[in-house]
Nucleic acid binder design. Structure first.
Length: 458
RNA sequence: GUGGUUGUAGCUCAGCUGGUUAGAGCGCUGGAUUGUGGUUCCAGAGGUCGCCGGUUCGAACCCGGUCUUCCACCCCA
């Protein structure tokens, strides 16, 4: 019995037009990764469970897709574990592998395993799918691509500067003008927590602060109160909630606010270096702004934090992000290796380019020339022309059967083919072919002896 | 993981308080048009009403479960 086909929750098929558009983005991103000296790596789609488990927090462990062991795996479970019905204990017994959850942890594993063959600083890029057992929402899937570039083995702030330039280069070539590269520093957040006397509430404080543009000042002060942050501390931090002005003005305010915190002051000087260096180098189309409310990925970032916002007027959250993490490889026993990296949010960039109509027109042109098939002899002559066109790199095809003219023309029209070639009985006799321009509808005749006349006009 | 929401033709959606044979637009196929698509006209094909069960004389409609969609939270790209 035929079953109705379906697709797993949170997954997608990509049709030709979508693949073309996605590749267009990939190709531009890759091109700039390469010109900045990054090298590609790939890692397996699944890893040993112990490589992934415990690296993303409790929430992360829940969202990792586990792969069932092969064979008669239940036989190996002792009765006690089986009867306890404890999913965590049970999972450890019946699953030893799990699907990749992000690209950063596998990369850290890769660096540690290949440390003797890598020349540091090592700049790598990686574009591969990752999987999360999350509940899907718009723009959030259970299978999606991550597109990362990281540098390990250099603590120079010039790396941060390069990533800002890289973002600018990619978004400029994609035609996405006016993206906002937001910059913050974990040390500044830690310094703030320190000077307001809530050092041990750093995470709660910043998670609340991160929601400023979403729930407003009242919302975040309420959340901070609920998390047990003192009224005095909230008051002391209040100037941050309405921090405004130019980057240099904001830096001046922060410098003063954090003058008694060693860590905070370090953060301010790091941020100042990046801002000043970029100011002297210049950016093509992007804006670089300080945003002290930026707190993404705070669990592992230790220095700079990046987030890229879509241009004004586009209803879309962040389209990229990243930061510095001082101890990337420590979890796998390799100490003192600093890493810094960025990520491009492919799916969201796709949606933004679609909304602003920024994909090149020709992207949906899968065929430039289609020859109408009028029969055996005519078809053969057309196929000779097609071979010639293909050798010249022209995307061309012969309709495979001598179907009705109307059907063949309609096919060409639906496939967005700009030129239709007609070689019928009469043309065959005169050794010519007719080219119909599907856009304006006019026709021109060329000699089969010199098709380059037509090719040169393409 | 919590709360809510959605599902009817290939697509977008109508379908009254439960009542005969479930409709439209677009698309598709054929014809008007035997060498001309994109505009027009005519005709036709296409439906387990997400799935399973229940209530009822009778269910697309009511109830339960399940899957799916989307939304908020959590978290995140």
């Amino acid at each position: 019995m035929a079953q109705k086909p379906s697709i797993a929750k949170g997954t997608r098929d990509f049709s030709p037009s979508e693949v073309n558009k996605r590749n267009y983005i990939f190709d531009i991103v890759k091109k700039h990764f390469k010109t900045y000296g990054f090298q590609p790596i790939e890692t397996p789609s699944f890893e040993n469970s112990e490589t992934l488990m415990g690296k993303y927090g409790d929430e992360g462990d829940r969202l990792i897709f586990k792969i069932l062991n092969s064979g008669d795996y239940l036989r190996k479970v002792d009765d006690k574990t089986y009867e306890s019905k404890d999913a965590t204990a049970m999972t450890a017994k019946i699953s030893e592998k799990a699907l990749r959850y992000d690209l950063t942890v596998p990369f850290a594993r890769y660096v540690v395993m290949h440390q003797n063959e890598i020349d540091f600083p090592f700049k790598r890029y990686q574009i591969q799918p990752v999987w999360r057992a999350d509940r899907p929402q718009k723009g959030r899937f259970r299978e999606f691509f991550q597109c990362d570039a990281d540098v390990v083995g250099s603590d120079s702030l010039l790396q941060e500067v390069e990533f800002v330039q890289l973002y600018d280069a990619v978004f400029t070539e994609l035609g996405l003008q006016g993206v906002n590269i937001k910059l913050n520093n974990r040390k500044i957040l830690a310094g703030i927590a320190e000077v307001i006397g809530e050092r041990d509430k750093l995470i709660d404080f910043t998670v609340a602060l991160d929601k400023l543009d979403k729930i407003g000042i009242d919302g975040i002060t309420k959340e901070m109160r609920e998390k047990g942050i003192s009224e005095k501390a909230i008051e002391a931090a209040a100037p941050l909630f309405s921090l405004s002005g130019s980057n240099l003005e904001q830096l001046a305010v922060l410098k003063d606010l954090l003058k008694d915190s060693e860590e905070g002051s370090k953060g301010v000087s790091e941020l100042t270096f990046i801002i000043e260096t970029i100011a002297s180098l210049g950016l093509q189309t992007a804006k670089l702004t300080i945003d002290v409310t930026l707190a993404r990925g705070l669990n592992y970032y230790t220095g700079a934090i990046f987030e890229v916002g879509a241009p004004e007027g586009v209803q879309m959250g962040s389209i990229g992000g990243g930061g510095r993490y001082d101890d990337l490889t420590g979890i796998f026993g390799m100490k003192n290796v600093s890493g810094v990296g960025i990520s491009f949010g492919l799916d969201r960039i796709y949606l933004v380019l679609e909304e602003l109509n920024l994909f090149p027109e020709a992207i949906d042109q899968s065929l430039e020339v289609l020859c109408v098939n009028f029969g055996e002899k005519e078809g053969l002559a057309a196929l000779k022309l097609v071979s010639r066109l293909r050798k010249m790199g022209v995307k061309s095809d012969l309709y495979p059967s001598a179907a009705k003219m109307q059907k063949q023309m309609k096919y060409a029209n639906n496939r967005n083919v700009p030129y239709v070639v007609l070689i019928g009985e009469e043309e065959l006799e005169n050794n010519t072919f007719v080219v119909k321009n599907m856009l304006i509808g006019d026709q021109k005749t060329y000699s089969l002896n010199s098709p380059e006349e037509f090719i040169n006009e393409l």
